[in-house]
């Protein structure tokens, strides 16, 4: 049984996640993670073969922050906007009060000419904790079905 306040908090977290990436509020997106979070993006083919290889990995919130800094000040990438469509999460209560969530995503990109395409489809496997009535990602593992990445992966999935 997961209390309805927790369910509401999780729904807000999921919505904020998509909103903050898609509206280019990446600095605020960082704050959806706990300080000791794990955020990683993994090709499904590696998961299937039991291999640990990642596309990217952040072992704490500082690293998530650094990724945003790098995108802002250092990296050059395709000029585009993102649009996340995230399905309803399947929730499982954990003994320590956290909640495991699994949801599917589709991420579309649109370029400056107004052409859109499916950039990535896959799923999120999360561990969500609650601090001051708010839900945060203690863990977000993005498993990418579209592991033949179209060109490059800059803004987060």
């Amino acid at each position: 049984m997961i209390a309805s306040e927790k369910r509401d908090a999780i729904a807000d977290l999921m919505a904020e996640y998509a909103y903050r990436i898609d509206r280019d509020k990446l600095e605020d997106w960082v704050n959806l993670f706990t300080e000791d979070c794990l955020y990683k993006v993994v090709p499904r083919e590696n998961v299937a073969q039991g291999l640990p290889g990642v596309l990217l990995i952040c072992l704490n919130r500082n690293m998530v922050h650094d990724r945003v800094t790098s995108l802002r000040v250092a990296n050059e990438y395709n000029i585009h906007v993102d649009r996340h469509v995230i399905g309803a999460p399947r929730l499982t209560a954990q003994a320590d009060g956290s909640v495991r969530a699994e949801s599917n995503y589709a991420l579309f990109q649109t370029n400056q000419e107004g052409e859109s395409w499916l950039f990535s489809v896959g799923c999120y496997e999360d561990v969500i904790v609650f601090q001051g009535g708010k839900a945060l990602f203690k863990e977000r593992v993005v498993i990418v079905d579209t592991y033949a990445i179209p060109n490059l992966l800059a803004t987060p999935i």
Partner: peptide
């Protein structure tokens, strides 16, 4: 020891 794979499709 192979740790994994990454792929990208570049036009």
């Amino acid at each position: 020891k192979v740790l994994g794979y990454q792929r990208q499709r570049i036009k």
